[in-house]
Design a protein around this nucleic acid. Structure first.
Length: 308
DNA sequence: AGTAGCACCTGATTGC
DNA sequence: TGCAATCAGGTGCTAC
């Protein structure tokens, strides 16, 4: 999504912003009026991503500099239209009108499940140093992204630090992968895929991983995310499309997620499904062996009954 | 301090 | 055909 937006909006200027559902700007203290006012006349210098957080860096004529931050939640999309835009879709929560080289550009924010949001907020110095994230020209992050760790694919990520963070605590390793303050960008699908590739059971406690385990796991996560990115993401239906409304193709290549009851591609064992930390989880009981109870004698937390 | 659980929503699908 | 229950790719707050 970031890569699709960047060439369209870099150098463009916001002319107007219309909010169709107030809750999509719920993090904007002054509501829709403040949101529209903050954007009006602002130009876009860059489009940056860190994990699942995306932001448009606004030209810095203010102190502190500002960004238009976005999170797509579960079902958010951006759709762009050049020239005359069609009537807004039922799920269109906000419409952004921009101009560039005298041309009109419309960017709609659609979101069926309304977990996504937009807001204009200050950019602050990063706590982890270096560039703000992919696409960023500045060592700054939106205030609401300051607590998010670097992306698994961020070339500037400190992998020694990531390995250490990944192996901390006794939570299920899958829960740690989903915790965006450890390593960001890994969601429920890519967590299951990374664990399958690395041969690690989702309920293994994080502190039971060896350094070799965590290295293999992070490498698997990077690999699956890079392959998904090259195919335009993981689309199951019309809810997950790019800025032109087109689907990605990675769902064809999933090895674990959504394959409950089907044979493992490595060993043929039937893939199981259960919940870990409240999230649907899929794994091969042969390639990803069940953790034995730990030295404390307690059972793995979050263990749930398996579906038959 | 760290973590589990729930709240926040809409809509498609499944089962009765 | 209708209605209720269930499920969905995320995050952050609250209560333990």
């Amino acid at each position: 999504m970031r890569a699709g937006l960047e060439p369209l909006v870099t150098g463009a200027t916001f002319a107007a912003a219309t909010v169709f559902r107030d809750s999509c700007v719920r993090h904007q203290g002054g509501g829709p009026a403040e949101f529209s006012m903050s954007l009006s006349g602002a130009s876009v210098d860059a489009v940056v991503r860190r994990g699942k957080f995306l932001w448009f860096v606004l030209r810095a004529d203010t102190a502190p500099p500002l960004a238009l931050s976005a999170h797509l939640g579960m079902s958010g999309q951006f759709r762009s239209f050049g020239g005359q835009a069609p009537a807004p879709h039922t799920h269109c929560r906000a419409r952004l009108a921009l101009t560039r080289h005298g041309e009109l550009l419309t960017v709609d924010f659609l979101d069926q499940r309304t977990f996504g949001y937009l807001h204009v907020e200050p950019l602050v110095p990063t706590s982890d140093g270096g560039p703000g994230g992919q696409g960023s020209p500045l060592p700054l992050l939106p205030r609401s992204v300051a607590h998010i760790a670097r992306d698994a694919l961020d070339p500037g990520a400190d992998s020694a630090r990531a390995h250490k963070a990944l192996r901390k605590g006794n939570r299920a390793i899958k829960s740690v992968l989903l915790d965006q303050t450890t390593v960001s960008g890994i969601g429920n699908i890519y967590a299951d895929e990374a664990l399958w590739f690395a041969g690690i059971h989702p309920l293994r406690s994080a502190d039971s991983l060896t350094p070799a385990d965590s290295a293999r796991l992070l490498a698997s996560a990077r690999d699956v995310m890079a392959r998904a990115l090259a195919q335009g993401g993981t689309s199951f239906d019309a809810l997950y499309v790019n800025v032109n409304g087109e689907s990605g193709y990675f769902s064809r290549d999933l090895a674990a997620y959504g394959r409950f009851g089907a044979p493992c591609f490595r060993c043929g064992t039937i893939i199981l499904k259960s919940t870990v930390g409240g999230r649907a989880s899929h794994w091969c009981p042969t390639c990803q062996r069940e953790p034995r109870s730990r030295t404390t004698g307690t059972r793995a937390t979050g263990r749930a009954s398996q579906e038959s």
